[in-house]
Design a protein around this nucleic acid. Structure first.
Length: 664
DNA sequence: GAGAAAGTAAACAAGT
DNA sequence: GACTTGTTTACTTTCT
């Protein structure tokens, strides 16, 4: 018997259970082992979320644009005639806004509900789009201006050089500049989060790679170096993007401590930095440099420690001067950027699909057709790949989402869910403001079809299963059925999770076994359930706070705090669970574990009951069996479940004065 | 690093 | 005897 079970476990756990531990740790190798730590390491390892990718892309685009400007300013203009008149090149784009966030995308997903996420992204995209457009517009104006200047100079000066060539090259650059602009606008449009203004976006996406070819870059470097005086004048007039952090001080990267807050910006700009520049009147933080952060050089692959900016600049000029190596590194970086852009586009598509799904009605049928043409670079766990009949590799970030393509995706998929098909150290949903009932209500279809492990503990799931029933009692087998019915994930590995279910039922005092005529049913002792939960979401108040502030979306804080608060009322949009009274009741929750508090309120009964109305509005009825029948065994807490004020004589309840888990 | 919480595996018993 | 249900223990992992 047991042997069989064991063997079944082994056979049925290609992705989880036994192999889970390793799987759980590995998949996140690049992206978060299910927790903050993992997420952080994921960022450090270079796995970037779409948002980060977008930021990175924007940064790179701006850098490229700057290089064009430099090239234009130094290579195409006559130093003698233009240097003094070099117009200020204002770059309104907020680099700070593009700074990486302290919060991990997984955390964001945990914190924010889908609509909130979408709103966030939309706002972000809108801001970026606006700034990009503004920026590009100015860039073009500058280019035109310089073109005119150049033509003027060409008329005045004898033809020492083939000016036509220069103009041609310049016009090409202008064209490339426009292409670059359109590329980014298209990228934004492709994400579906912004609409491309009419009259734009006619240039094919493929133009970007040609926007700056390595040869251009190399040439640019040389010209930049050769035209030091010009660049000095330029940078003093605010060419450096970093000076524009003042546009959005609330987004300041300086406030964002993690390593990624200083993305290396591999371009020729580095050679421009001099101590004099840093002492300029810009609001740039003293000692800051795009390639300098945390006391070390951020040049790709360098990481040389520099005590101060001066030393760094010296280091930069010596170690990363214009040479073949640096140029090659730039090329590599550009390729990286291009790859990331491609990846970003694909990830964005997926995000869009997920967002679209999140507005789908829970009952809406969603076919398993339409596989996304997703990135192939992602590494997948075995189980994940097993999941996809299309055979397409799907990125790990949505080991879940792709399964139910385009319209599928849990609203608040935890990082664990996203990255692990196997076991998760859950708590996530509970801690991150996602009551299970809400999550399930919103993503019922998703979990039902996607082979994704729900980010809930067994205890939570069991409780949910029981509470969903009118009688709030289930037999073990019914609990099994609920699991398999609700979650595709639990249609596999049956031996393992069933064992876990039984284990949890026995282990937790909150689950009360009630003898019945036909056998035994399990009920939930809400009081015990609440007791077993930590009174606070340890660290979460600050964590959430930091998350929000760390988002770097300063102006959005309010809205997202509100959104966060809203996420505490998950049932508001749940068709089956409506209780508006809870909202007001929850507003005071503040820094506590929201979900915990929410349910705490419920358990207290006196306050606004929440969660499933049926859970708290109806008394428990033991199936068919008069309550007296259970006197012998554990008559226990059916009443306690109902009344919430436990007068339980059960042996298990006698333990409640003791540490809950005295078993272990 | 300690402790708690949770997941997994397994042994075992009792009942059907 | 096979299977289910239930309990318990041990161990590991994750998180605070």
């Amino acid at each position: 018997m047991m042997v069989e079970s064991a063997s079944e476990t082994i056979r049925s756990t290609p992705s989880g259970q036994n192999g889970v531990s390793s799987l759980t740790n590995q998949p996140d190798g690049g992206g978060g082992g299910g927790g903050r730590e993992g997420a952080a390491s994921g960022e450090a390892n270079g796995e970037m979320s779409p948002v980060e990718l977008l930021h990175f892309q924007q940064q790179q685009a701006l850098q490229v644009a700057r290089q064009f400007l430099l090239q234009q300013a130094t290579g195409l203009s006559s130093p003698s005639s233009n240097e003094g008149k070099q117009p200020a090149v204002q770059v309104p784009v907020s680099v700070a806004m593009m700074s990486p966030q302290m919060i991990t995308p997984q955390q964001m997903q945990q914190i924010l509900s889908p609509p909130q996420l979408q709103a966030l992204l939309q706002q972000q995209q809108a801001i970026m789009l606006q700034q990009l457009q503004e920026y590009y517009k100015k860039q073009q104006e500058q280019l035109h201006l310089q073109l005119l200047t150049q033509q003027q100079a060409g008329k005045q000066q004898p033809k020492e050089q083939p000016l036509g060539n220069k103009q041609l090259a310049f016009q090409q650059q202008l064209l490339q500049m426009q292409q670059l602009q359109q590329q980014h606008l298209l990228n934004l449009q492709r994400q579906g989060l912004v609409s491309l203004p009419p009259g734009q976006g006619t240039v094919p996406l493929q133009t970007l790679p040609q926007a700056v070819c390595p040869s251009d870059l190399q040439q640019l470097w040389k010209e930049v170096t050769a035209a030091q005086p010009v660049e000095d004048s330029i940078k003093q007039e605010g060419l450096d993007l970093t000076t524009n952090t003042s546009n959005s001080t609330s987004f300041s990267a300086a406030k964002v401590s993690p390593p990624i807050s200083h993305h290396p910006l591999p371009n020729g700009q580095s050679t421009m930095h001099t101590p004099r520049r840093d002492s300029s009147s810009h609001e740039e933080t003293p000692g800051s440099h795009p390639l300098y952060g945390h006391g070390e050089c951020k040049w790709p692959g360098c990481e040389t420690l520099c005590e101060d900016l001066g030393q760094f600049v010296k280091h930069l000029n010596t170690e990363h001067a214009l040479d073949d190596r640096s140029t090659a590194q730039c090329r590599v970086q550009m390729q990286v950027v291009q790859q990331l852009e491609i990846q970003l586009a694909k990830e964005s598509e997926r995000l869009q699909a997920m967002m679209a799904h999140l507005h789908m009605r829970p009952s809406e049928p969603k076919p398993f057709s339409q596989p996304l043409n997703l990135v192939s670079s992602a590494t997948l766990s075995k189980s994940t790949s097993d999941t996809f009949p299309d055979g397409l590799p799907h990125p790990p970030t949505s080991a879940t989402a792709p399964i139910t393509p385009l319209r599928q995706g849990p609203s608040v998929i935890s990082s664990s869910t996203l990255h692990n098909v196997g076991p998760i150290r859950r708590r996530n949903s509970e801690k991150f403001c996602t009551p299970i009932s809400s999550e399930l209500a919103q993503n019922h279809e998703f979990y039902k079809n996607a082979d994704v492990r729900p980010p809930f503990t067994y205890a939570s799931l069991i409780r949910q299963a029981i509470l969903e029933t009118p009688d709030r009692q289930l037999t073990l087998n019914e609990i099994y059925n609920w699991f398999t019915r609700m979650f595709a994930y639990f249609r596999r590995n049956t031996a393992t999770w069933k064992n876990a279910v039984r284990h949890n039922l026995s282990l937790h005092k909150c689950f009360v076994r009630v003898e019945n005529v036909k056998g035994a049913v399990w009920t939930v002792d809400e009081h015990e359930y609440q007791k077993r939960r930590p009174p606070k979401m340890t660290g979460s108040p600050t964590l959430v706070k930091n998350m929000i502030s760390g988002l770097g979306y300063g102006a959005l804080n309010a809205s997202y705090q509100a959104a966060l608060a809203e996420s505490s009322f998950p049932l508001l949009n749940s068709p089956t669970m409506i209780n508006t009274s809870s909202a007001s009741g929850m507003l005071h929750v503040g820094h506590d574990d929201v979900s915990s508090t929410v349910e705490q309120v419920n358990s207290n009964g006196s306050n606004s009951p929440r969660l499933s109305p049926q859970q708290y509005s109806h008394p428990v009825h033991v199936k068919e069996e008069p309550a007296e029948a259970e006197d012998d065994s554990r008559p226990v807490s059916l009443l306690a479940t109902t009344n919430q004020n436990v007068t339980i004589a059960d042996d298990r309840d006698l333990e409640e004065e003791l540490p809950v888990e005295d078993l272990s």
